[in-house]
Design a protein around this nucleic acid. Structure first.
Length: 225
DNA sequence: TGTGTCAAGGAGCCGC
DNA sequence: GCGGCTCCTTGACACA
């Protein structure tokens, strides 16, 4: 008798390794029960334009050395714009907000409870402001439009950070669960195989595989071309 | 005094 | 080319 128990081709079309079959097929069954939450799935591609842009920036930053950013004509034009931006706040002269002090240091603006509450409320309504909304809100709050804009930008960043933390946690739990399931199924399979040779034959037959009689492992039944 | 939080500055990207 | 966005960083401030 050969060391390989050859089994004829079965009905299954797939020609994956049986071990793969055990790993993936069974995991998929588990997967159906322990699928990652939608938010995590949405996160998985990790190739959103934003992420890619960030990665590009990071790479570029590294190329230019930590912190040292090459001065390009683009930067110069942007700098000019930024200067304009901070003064775009045409309206609302200095209300003490972020005004620089005479010694060059800047005074930190602390929003009042009322201001923060109103900002939160409008953020919940919609997290991006139109030009008009920004100015209206600024007038209501007695702040500069630029300050309202900055608050929304920072608020969006905080929201995103929170969501990322949440997704990481969900992903971590999902991985743990998959590992547990995988280990359990491996145990169950080993038990089944050792207690039921007939089952093993059916399994291998279905996948055109053979069982090595010495090590009991599954291998391809086909001869190399 | 060390640390966390948060408003603001600045660079770079993208869409119009 | 401009405006608005994100990301990263900085600096002021509160608090243990």
């Amino acid at each position: 008798m050969s060391s390989l128990t050859t089994i004829s081709s079965g009905a299954m079309e797939e020609s994956q390794e049986v071990e793969e079959l055990v790993d993936t097929r069974l995991s998929l069954v588990i997967g159906a029960a322990s699928r990652p939450p939608p938010t995590v799935l949405a996160l998985l591609p990790a190739t959103s334009p934003e992420n890619e842009a960030a990665a590009r920036r990071k790479r570029k930053g590294q190329e230019n050395g930590a912190g040292g950013v090459a001065a390009t004509s683009r930067q110069h034009s942007k700098r000019a714009k930024t200067v304009h931006d901070s003064s775009d706040v045409d309206d609302d002269d200095d209300d003490g907000g972020d005004a620089a002090r005479s010694d060059g240091t800047r005074k930190k603006l602390r929003l009042t409870v009322e201001q923060a509450a109103l900002l939160e409320e409008s953020f919940r309504a919609h997290n991006v402001l139109s030009h008009g909304e920004k100015h209206d809100l600024a007038r209501q709050l007695g702040l500069k439009p630029r300050q309202v804009e900055v608050w929304f930008q920072n608020r969006r960043a905080r929201t995103k950070l929170k969501q990322t933390e949440l997704d990481c946690e969900l992903l971590r739990r999902w991985c743990e669960r998959l590992s547990d399931d995988n280990a359990r199924l491996r145990r169950e399979l080993a038990e089944t195989l050792s207690s039921s040779p007939a089952f093993l034959s059916r399994l291998t037959m279905a996948n055109d595989k053979a069982v090595c009689s010495s090590c009991n492992k599954l291998t391809s039944a086909r001869m190399p071309a």
